[in-house]
Computed example of a mutant assay.
Amino acid sequence: MPGSGANKTHAVVEGGSIFIQKLNSSLWAEANEKKILLGQLISMYSELLKTIFKNKRSKHVKDIIAALEVYKTHYSDGMKKAEELLQLAKLPMNDAKIELKAIMELRTVLLEMNKEEVRRKRRSRAQNPRGRPNLSG
């Protein structure tokens, strides 16, 4: 029967992981980036458990929700960063006022990008000072 809960469950199970693939993705490799992702996942799990167990919450479920809430406060800075990214993505880039401001800020943004690139190259050289392949794994 189309649209039944069993078919939806089967589709999710067959389709692979929902969150694990994101955690293992190279897009979220750096610790700060992963912290943003984990903050979002923690928030989603907290809401999920609160919704599923709206009326009947065993002590075990209450403990998990409480732990997630503690983690949420620990990862809240990551959530703030994610929210800023979402706000940036929603900017109407065809708005004349935003276009003008963006063009006025372009030089500063490019200078910041250059600083980050120099830092990244320095870290790379510091980890591998003589250009030898890093075989430590």
Rank of each mutant, 00 (worst) to 15 (best):
residue 115 K to C: 02
residue 13 V to K: 03
residue 23 L to I: 09
residue 91 L to K: 15
residue 81 K to P: 00
residue 45 Y to K: 08
residue 53 F to H: 09
residue 95 D to A: 10
residue 7 N to C: 03
residue 66 A to V: 02
residue 30 E to Y: 08
residue 24 N to W: 03
residue 84 E to C: 04
residue 93 M to N: 11
residue 109 V to W: 09
residue 51 T to Y: 07
residue 83 E to Q: 14
residue 120 R to N: 13
residue 4 S to H: 03
residue 59 K to I: 12
residue 134 N to H: 06
residue 103 I to D: 13
residue 104 M to V: 11
residue 13 V to S: 03
residue 84 E to Y: 03
residue 112 E to D: 12
residue 109 V to L: 12
residue 80 K to P: 01
residue 132 R to V: 07
residue 19 F to I: 10
residue 38 L to W: 04
residue 39 G to K: 01
residue 29 A to F: 09
residue 96 A to L: 14
residue 115 K to P: 00
residue 116 E to G: 02
residue 71 Y to P: 00
residue 126 A to Y: 07
residue 88 L to F: 14
residue 136 S to K: 13
residue 59 K to Y: 10
residue 71 Y to Q: 11
residue 52 I to Y: 13
residue 99 E to S: 10
residue 9 T to R: 03
residue 26 S to L: 10
residue 38 L to D: 03
residue 103 I to P: 01
residue 118 V to H: 10
residue 119 R to K: 14
residue 4 S to R: 01
residue 67 A to E: 09
residue 82 A to N: 12
residue 14 E to A: 11
residue 132 R to E: 14
residue 115 K to M: 08
residue 21 Q to N: 11
residue 126 A to N: 14
residue 6 A to G: 05
residue 85 L to W: 08
residue 125 R to K: 15
residue 77 D to V: 09
residue 120 R to Y: 12
residue 28 W to I: 02
residue 85 L to F: 10
residue 36 I to S: 00
residue 53 F to E: 00
residue 79 M to I: 15
residue 124 S to G: 06
residue 8 K to H: 07
residue 46 S to N: 09
residue 20 I to M: 06
residue 16 G to H: 01
residue 41 L to A: 08
residue 116 E to S: 10
residue 99 E to I: 15
residue 52 I to W: 11
residue 45 Y to C: 09
residue 84 E to H: 05
residue 44 M to Q: 15
residue 95 D to F: 06
residue 98 I to V: 15
residue 89 A to L: 07
residue 57 R to V: 04
residue 135 L to F: 09
residue 9 T to P: 00
residue 59 K to E: 15
residue 45 Y to A: 04
residue 91 L to G: 04
residue 18 I to W: 04
residue 17 S to H: 03
residue 33 E to L: 05
residue 32 N to T: 11
residue 89 A to K: 14
residue 10 H to N: 02
residue 71 Y to E: 10
residue 50 K to I: 04
residue 4 S to G: 04
residue 69 E to R: 08
residue 37 L to N: 07
residue 1 M to E: 00
residue 112 E to V: 05
residue 71 Y to F: 13
residue 31 A to E: 13
residue 62 K to I: 05
residue 38 L to N: 12
residue 34 K to H: 07
residue 51 T to S: 13
residue 34 K to A: 01
residue 92 P to I: 03
residue 107 R to M: 06
residue 82 A to Q: 11
residue 117 E to H: 10
residue 72 K to I: 02
residue 28 W to P: 01
residue 36 I to M: 09
residue 87 Q to A: 14
residue 24 N to A: 07
residue 13 V to W: 03
residue 4 S to I: 00
residue 120 R to F: 11
residue 46 S to Y: 07
residue 118 V to I: 15
residue 106 L to M: 15
residue 84 E to P: 01
residue 131 G to E: 06
residue 41 L to R: 02
residue 75 Y to T: 06
residue 4 S to T: 04
residue 11 A to W: 01
residue 19 F to R: 05
residue 86 L to P: 00
residue 118 V to D: 08
residue 56 K to D: 15
residue 5 G to F: 00
residue 28 W to S: 01
residue 98 I to L: 15
residue 78 G to Q: 02
residue 31 A to Y: 04
residue 8 K to V: 02
residue 90 K to S: 14
residue 73 T to C: 09
residue 86 L to D: 13
residue 26 S to N: 07
residue 127 Q to C: 12
residue 51 T to V: 11
residue 33 E to I: 01
residue 37 L to K: 05
residue 9 T to V: 13
residue 61 V to H: 03
residue 73 T to F: 06
residue 99 E to R: 15
residue 21 Q to M: 06
residue 61 V to F: 04
residue 104 M to N: 15
residue 91 L to H: 08
